[in-house]
Design a protein around this nucleic acid. Structure first.
Lengths: 354, 354
DNA sequence: AATGCGCATGTTAGCGCAAACATTCAAGGC
DNA sequence: GCCTTGAATGTTTGCGCTAACATGCGCATT
């Protein structure tokens, strides 16, 4: 009866008392500290004792309370995914990758989309990390490219991994999604098909990936002595509409390009429409290559030849690294190799016809 | 020096000690229990005291440690999103909606994709809820339609909200995404454009939404005395490919349908290709209506007329309801009205031409 | 035999908060 | 005046776990 304060609803979950470390200790005939040592893999437990305790843990299905553990450790067992990438497919793939590596690790994933433009962004971000005492944070582009964010994390002392197109940090804190390699792959493919007059639609300069995809593309063309004049380079914004308008512009050049590389699938889809609208056919008249291999790439006509970005794999690597980091493990000095983007050839590319 | 056990890294986050409820109590010249009462909105605090404490809390930016709070309350302040819906856009929109309502509430969102087919699914699910002592769970289709899941939650006593196309539960536990209304809207639109011969591509029967979308569509046509014979109904699987093949089939019927309603955008995109491939034009020869209004709807040509499913709004409502539930508030007896789907008219529909 | 040392374990005191049980103080009843 | 009542606050205990500090025990050393 007593006080009856407002919101806190009485009783926790279920009715029966849940098994605690004490129960395990009693069953094993040891103190709870020894059980704790087993759970935390302390080397100072006799092999035989460890096995006995582990058997009991397995039998009872016991698993330590993350909250209590967190309170004692002064950190939660939560990993945050912080992103401002508007592409749903990227986000979901990233989440799946992270969860792949987190499964069975005792960590959980909390998602935190954010708006880097908001005036309270940094303060909110900091609050989020501190309040939740996150074990670690995964940053994706373009938050991952924000050095203020990095500074906050360093100051707080929170483990983090940045996913970025270029090595912007020490190797232990970054996973490089090798967009440059992907750009090269696209150029190589078009070159091998005999294209000489190629148009390029870049992403917005605010994304590092734009520069990388473009850089890789240009490098490969240069290596092959294929020219790419400024006239044949348009700047889009990773959207369908900009893909459409930029491609329309490119198609009006003389000589008309026989191929277009758009820096993401969305823009490539726009390019397909521009081609059709111009009375041309893809790939007979103009080939198109996209980037990302998101769902849209196989839902347009013709299905897009594109560069598959191994987002899920990158997520998995990020989580593995982060868990190791937050457990205090020392990291290798060199950056992890990082899964490389790979070309997926579909129907939107064909031999040059000029 | 002492033991130096393996994984637990010493020291928590940051260096400086963080402010606790004790600090606030000291500053306010009261006991920490009084501060606790203020935080938990107990009515037994003098107005003046409450204001003074609130002022200090605001000033110091203090916010209680969720872990400690959770430990004492026997529940975390985490809300879980459990889903097996493969559509990234749906998932991301849902997450955004949930977070809209959770912002500032002190809750965080942990995501939990699952595979309902896995043999350990139910056990894993239960473990997840119990271990984390989740405050609440949001279930989306098709996990939301699984009564075993509901049973587990009831047994554990965990608050939950199911998002479903039909009222499968008591009103306090469900939010209805009125797919039937959306189906009707699509039919009305086509009828008003004068279409009489209409083809329909349904979703897979394993999703309730399939039945609802189809049901609404059929009901509206019946009300308007427009026939829809089995010949003009195809069953797809919510994928681009099935949309393509089903539409091809429909286009071979005599008389040829002047309009096709596909139960999601993905299939509608497939239908567009089938139309083009058949040498026809959309919307001149055949109109197409989709469902969902995901990104793909505006990235195909012509941009799709479709039914926008207010996923984000539904998510917001779900989180609001769940927070109220988990705070022990009594729920209204009737189901919340639920944001209704709305038709978005773009370029894929036009007047009937037969 | 006394000493030291290292492994294996137990004990105590928190982590930051809320529940249950005091306690205080003022207003009102007879 | 004494006693009841109840609002407003404080004290203690404990949520489930770990850190820091014992402690016990066997063995090698002097």
């Amino acid at each position: 009866m007593a006080e009856n304060e407002a919101p806190p609803p009485r009783r926790g979950l279920g009715g029966e008392k849940k098994t605690t470390i004490n129960d395990i200790a009693r069953l094993a005939g040891v103190s709870k500290k020894t059980v704790s040592r087993v759970i935390n893999q302390s080397p100072f437990v006799k092999e035989e004792t460890r096995e006995r305790i582990n058997a009991i843990i397995a039998e009872t299905g016991f698993s330590p309370d993350p909250q209590a553990r967190g309170l004692a450790f002064r950190r939660s067992f939560l990993i945050g995914l912080v992103y401002d990438n508007p592409n749903p497919q990227y986000v979901v793939n990233m989440q799946l990758g992270l969860l792949d590596a987190m499964r069975g690790s005792g960590y959980e994933l909390v998602v935190h989309p954010c708006n880097r433009g908001a005036p309270t962004f940094l303060a909110d971000f900091r609050r989020f990390i501190e309040r939740q005492k996150l074990s670690g944070v995964v940053l994706t582009p373009s938050v991952s490219e924000d050095d203020r964010v990095k500074a906050v994390l360093e100051e707080i002392g929170c483990a983090y991994i940045r996913i970025a197109s270029v090595p912007v940090d020490e190797p232990s804190h970054i996973i490089v999604s090798n967009d440059r390699v992907g750009g090269r792959a696209a150029a190589r493919h078009l070159a091998e098909l005999g294209h000489k007059t190629i148009g390029f639609i870049s992403g917005p300069p605010s994304f590092r990936s734009s520069h990388e995809r473009r850089g890789g593309f240009e490098d490969e063309l240069k290596d092959r002595k294929i020219g790419l004049t400024p006239d044949y380079i348009m700047q889009g914004a990773y959207t369908f509409e900009t893909g459409l308008s930029c491609a329309a512009e490119l198609l009006s050049r003389t000589p008309r390009p026989t191929a277009i590389f758009a820096a993401n699938d969305e823009m490539a889809a726009g390019a397909l429409h521009a081609i059709r609208r111009a009375g041309l056919t893809c790939p007979a008249d103009v080939s198109v290559v996209g980037f990302d291999d998101f769902q849209i790439a196989s839902s347009v006509w013709p299905p897009l030849t594109t560069v598959r970005s191994p987002t899920r794999e990158i997520g998995r690597m990020a989580a593995e690294k982060l868990i190791a980091l937050s457990a205090g493990e020392v990291q290798a000095r060199e950056a992890a190799p990082g899964a490389a983007p790979a070309l997926v050839v579909r129907d939107s590319t064909g031999p040059a016809t000029n």
